[in-house]
């Protein structure tokens, strides 16, 4: 996440250059000073920790690094993280699209309440989000006894981890789409319908293509957070080794077991996934600006 957030200032000047020649009123010394401060700060706060993750990961050599990643528990954690991220992103893709479509294109009572609700996961602590699901689905919870009687496992199993992740990452897709859809208005949809298009084909041929890059951008952010989520998942995981530990949980476990190199090896893989997301995001941003 913190890695992803540095991207906009990097691409913004490129956009300005393409559209109009830059205008500066500040003396060069001030400009250099500002740029230096920004770079040093970024280097210290983001660059240095990132580098140290990789340094620590390789501190005991390649063999330890590879051994840490092919360890059955680590492999299970990587697999679980990918499964959870894939399901959560898929669900949030559909629900985020539906929610923002409803909010941007239609008028209905309770709309502002819905917008607030979408933002809720941003303001609720992830630990609380996790506890909510334990209180609901745990065996002392509201529907826990019913679930247990029917042998349905939610918390301390894959469904609970997915639920907690979906909860925490829900705003990413919707928050990306709502402003864009509101800006675009409903005139294109109205034109399509007046020309005889059905509701569904209007959605797939007009609405969706208009927001596709923003949607993909939201999906990427959602994915980055889904893979990195610790708090909420920690509460609902049950910490069963090789079964319900995701990568962030596995990193903590290895660290607590004095296996520092192995811990940082898994951490470096997670950081690498974040860097891939960052690159994809930068490419997408270029696309987005080109289309507008």
């Amino acid at each position: 996440m913190s890695v992803a957030e540095i991207a906009p200032p990097a691409t913004a000047p490129a956009r300005v250059i393409r559209q109009a020649p830059p205008v500066h009123t500040e003396p060069p010394a001030v400009r250099i000073a500002i740029i230096t401060v920004a770079l040093v700060f970024l280097g210290l706060v983001i660059g240095l920790p990132l580098v140290s993750v990789f340094v620590q990961a390789f501190a005991k050599g390649w063999q330890t690094y590879v051994a840490a990643l092919v360890d059955p528990d680590a492999l299970a954690a990587i697999r679980l993280t990918l499964i959870v991220a894939a399901i959560s992103v898929g669900l949030n893709l559909v629900f985020g699209l539906v929610a923002s479509w409803a909010i941007a294109k239609f008028e209905f009572t309770g709309k502002s309440f819905l917008i607030t609700l979408i933002d809720l996961p941003f303001s609720v602590s992830p630990v609380v989000a996790g506890l909510v699901f334990v209180l609901l689905f745990g065996s002392q919870g509201l529907i826990g006894p019913f679930l247990q009687a029917n042998d349905i496992k939610i918390v301390f199993a894959l469904p609970g981890i997915v639920l907690a992740t979906v909860f925490v990452t829900f705003p990413f897709v919707a928050r990306e789409l709502i402003p864009l859809m509101q800006e675009q208005g409903t005139s294109e949809e109205e034109a399509a319908i007046s020309l005889g298009a059905s509701g569904l084909s209007t959605f797939f041929r007009v609405t969706l293509p208009n927001v596709k890059w923003a949607l993909l951008y939201g999906v990427l952010l959602c994915n980055a957070r889904a893979m990195g989520e610790f708090g909420a998942v920690s509460v609902v995981s049950g910490h069963i080794r090789g079964l319900t530990n995701t990568m962030p949980l596995q990193i903590e476990i290895l660290y607590n077991e004095y296996q520092f190199a192995a811990s940082f090896a898994v951490a470096s893989l997670l950081a690498l996934l974040a860097l891939v997301t960052l690159c994809a995001k930068t490419i997408l941003e270029k696309r987005l600006t080109r289309e507008h």
């Binding site: 919870g141 301390f156 079964l243």
Partner: peptide
């Protein structure tokens, strides 16, 4: 045989909440 580890009190709580 699978293992789960954590603070003793927290682990008891998790079993009470349904960890099998």
């Amino acid at each position: 045989i699978r293992q789960s580890h954590g603070g003793s009190g927290a682990q008891a709580r998790t079993v009470i909440d349904g960890l099998e």
